[in-house]
Design a protein around this nucleic acid. Structure first.
Lengths: 190, 190
DNA sequence: GTCTATAATTTGATAGAC
DNA sequence: GTCTATCAAATTATAGAC
């Protein structure tokens, strides 16, 4: 007997994610979540005792889902442009459809004022996504000749450009500009 | 009789800017400002009736100061690398010294939940700073051969990379990584 | 210009009935 | 698991004395 509709906990996580991605962690309350889901705020606390718990779990789920969607970066071997294109496409969908930033990009912007557990998850997103790209790049013609450090820097550099572009595209009300953006691997020969 | 110390209004703007750049617009209160400046919150309201007023004025002052520091982009003519380097240096200082993001980058991240007046100022920062870079690039060897649209896209693309890199460098606790970053103008021959 | 005092609302969180 | 009820604290903002 598998339920076909999302249960309360999942609905809470979904809404919390959407609200953070548009308004930020400090831009939503337990009552916003409760009224949106159709329960009382005490029920939200039943699943997530503190706001930090909720924030951290939203971020972890986001990162896990993100990496699953990206898939394996090196089977089969793909070009650097294809790897970057995958990242770009995943961000572009949410930005175009709902004007949503990368969850962890928003958290990073507010990071100095957030609970430690939440910041740790945001950090982890950049570690893991950077690693995904690094592993993929290593299998390309360009990457096979690059040092570990160059691969690391290039990966974070591509992520940086995508994060910043989402930020600017959204505040400018021009999501289409993000679609046109094509981050380049410098000196890429792949 | 010119005062040598900052008056209350200036102190309020200074502290509000610092708090937004680290915690975000929704991450500080009028009482944070008041206690930091050494007055009561009602005195803060005397200068800035609403939080939106304060936020908008902080953003406008930030943008004005930023552009003054950048100086004239085309007298004398400089290379694309020098223009990008100027932007980079201005961001790097605040990030390295106090872990501060670009004010308008933070506001952009939270933008969907902010008062209109504040969002307008953040938008304006990217318009004006993008224009500054565009005007400078136009005078370079690369820029003189580029279309208006290419100049526009390249300028925003460089800004995007710098904004995203600040975000990532700070949440990762690695401001030094931002210092090493050198955004490239694609196909630049300047 | 700065203060005291306070209003009105919102927030994160808890206790306990059902 | 969800509810009612409530708390303590924080928030934006205002009125009026000095």
């Amino acid at each position: 007997m598998t339920a076909t509709t999302a249960d309360t906990e999942e609905k809470i996580l979904d809404l919390a994610e959407a609200l953070i991605r548009t308004n930020g962690y400090n831009g939503f309350s337990f009552r916003d979540i409760a009224s949106g889901v159709g329960v009382k705020s005490s029920s939200v606390h039943y699943y997530f005792p503190t706001k930090a718990d909720l924030g951290a779990k939203v971020a972890r789920r986001y990162t896990d889902r993100f990496l699953v969607t990206l898939g394996d970066p090196d089977t089969p071997a793909v070009s650097a442009d294809e790897l970057v294109g995958k990242l770009h496409a995943e961000f572009a969908t949410a930005l175009g459809k709902d004007g949503q930033m990368c969850l962890c990009g928003v958290l990073a912007a507010e990071s100095a004022g957030l609970p430690d557990a939440v910041v740790e998850e945001a950090k982890s997103f950049f570690d893991k996504t950077g690693d995904w790209l690094k592993r993929g790049l290593k299998k390309t013609a360009w990457g096979s000749a690059a040092t570990e450090e160059d691969l690391h820097k290039q990966s974070l550099s591509v992520l940086a450009q995508l994060e910043g572009a989402m930020l600017i595209a959204r505040v400018q009300g021009k999501p289409a500009w993000f679609n046109d953006l094509k981050p380049k691997i410098s000196g890429s020969i792949a």
